[in-house]
Simulated assay, not measured.
Amino acid sequence: MGFFSKLKESLAKTRQVFVEKIETLLTGYRKPDEEFFEELEEALIQADVGVTTSMQLVEKLQKICKERRIEDASLLKDVLAEEVARILGEEDIELNLKGQPFSVILVVGVNGVGKTTTIGKLAWFLKSQGKKVILAAGDTFRAAAIDQLEIWGNRAGVEVIKHQEGSDPAAVAFDAMQAARARKADVIIIDTAGRLHNKVNLMEELKKIKRVIQREVPDAPHEVLLVLDATTGQNAVNQAKIFGEAAGVTGIVLTKLDGTAKGGVIISIKNELKVPVKFIGIGEKMEDLRPFAPQEFASALFDRSDAKEM
């Protein structure tokens, strides 16, 4: 199965809630009047596009309707697809891997979002591109996190630097930096604790890790990736706002898109947070963590070429 087919398949539940509901609405109205736009806004909110983004989309569609003198509501599907594609962006945004002597990626996110799995898959992705990768088990708060990272490191075929549970995460990061320098690694990926109950602790811990790694590589970290679970819908946006303030997030990884009808949240994330989505998770296999291609995503979301078979 090609990537587009896999992506389209993974978005089936989201498409059902997002596109099919809207199609039903569009065919139910002859003219895009006030009542139509109210129902469209409601449909977008139910599809986890978020209140703010849904309102903005509807306002834009109303404006386009007037400008283009659109009298047939069914013509708005393509206009909506254009607007969603515009929000998602034109270009694929790659990881910043220009660090010298190596690049440092900090990975943050609450427990349960697939953070450890994402790190393992990201390590595999980078290794498949010819990069030498080292993982740092910086989530020392949970013993399971260290064990899980080691399992994923073995699967990806990369080295994992770890200390015992309860150790100082900054000390783990320091050892990983030393190991990367000694082994001539290209990339270090540092796991961090997934705690949000006390934002002050989170900020202080991340500041300490950053101080330690900046002694070795002054412009590090080169990426701070926030892992979000698509199945949590708008809650993911709230998490992103908190982590954005605390961690200086440079990119988002949206996981579990294949198992949810709430994939519309990616539109809200892009529109409201202004932080690029860099990777998406569309399955459980190693190769199912993929760089986010916004235009391909928009095409897959609105593609109904097999509608008659469904």
Rank of each mutant, 00 (worst) to 15 (best):
7 L>Y: 01
8 K>V: 01
10 S>Y: 00
11 L>R: 12
12 A>R: 15
14 T>P: 12
15 R>N: 01
16 Q>V: 02
16 Q>P: 03
18 F>R: 13
22 I>K: 07
26 L>H: 03
27 T>M: 09
29 Y>T: 05
33 D>K: 03
34 E>L: 04
36 F>K: 05
38 E>Q: 06
39 E>F: 01
40 L>Y: 01
40 L>G: 02
44 L>Y: 00
44 L>A: 00
51 V>H: 09
53 T>C: 07
54 S>A: 15
56 Q>V: 02
59 E>Y: 08
60 K>W: 04
60 K>Q: 14
68 R>T: 06
71 E>D: 13
71 E>Y: 12
72 D>I: 04
75 L>A: 14
82 E>R: 08
87 I>P: 12
90 E>P: 04
102 F>E: 11
102 F>H: 02
103 S>C: 00
105 I>D: 10
106 L>N: 10
109 G>V: 01
113 V>A: 06
120 G>E: 11
127 K>P: 05
128 S>A: 13
129 Q>L: 14
131 K>Y: 06
134 I>A: 07
134 I>Y: 07
135 L>P: 13
138 G>T: 01
140 T>N: 04
141 F>E: 12
142 R>L: 00
147 D>P: 11
148 Q>H: 11
150 E>C: 07
151 I>N: 10
152 W>P: 09
157 G>C: 08
158 V>G: 06
162 K>Q: 11
164 Q>W: 10
166 G>F: 05
166 G>M: 06
168 D>Y: 15
171 A>Y: 04
172 V>P: 09
174 F>I: 00
182 A>H: 10
183 R>Q: 15
184 K>T: 12
184 K>L: 09
189 I>Y: 13
191 D>N: 13
191 D>H: 02
193 A>Q: 02
193 A>F: 00
195 R>T: 03
196 L>F: 10
197 H>S: 05
200 V>H: 07
201 N>F: 01
202 L>Y: 00
202 L>H: 13
204 E>T: 05
212 V>N: 12
214 Q>S: 15
215 R>L: 02
217 V>I: 15
222 H>N: 00
223 E>T: 02
228 L>R: 08
231 T>H: 10
238 N>K: 11
239 Q>S: 00
243 F>S: 03
243 F>M: 08
246 A>W: 01
248 G>D: 13
252 I>W: 07
253 V>E: 08
253 V>K: 08
254 L>W: 04
256 K>P: 06
264 G>C: 05
267 I>L: 13
267 I>K: 14
269 I>S: 03
270 K>G: 01
271 N>D: 15
276 P>G: 08
284 E>G: 06
285 K>P: 05
285 K>Y: 02
287 E>D: 15
289 L>P: 07
289 L>I: 12
291 P>I: 07
292 F>N: 10
296 E>I: 14
297 F>S: 12
298 A>C: 15
302 F>W: 11
303 D>C: 05
303 D>H: 10
309 E>Q: 04
309 E>S: 12
310 M>S: 07
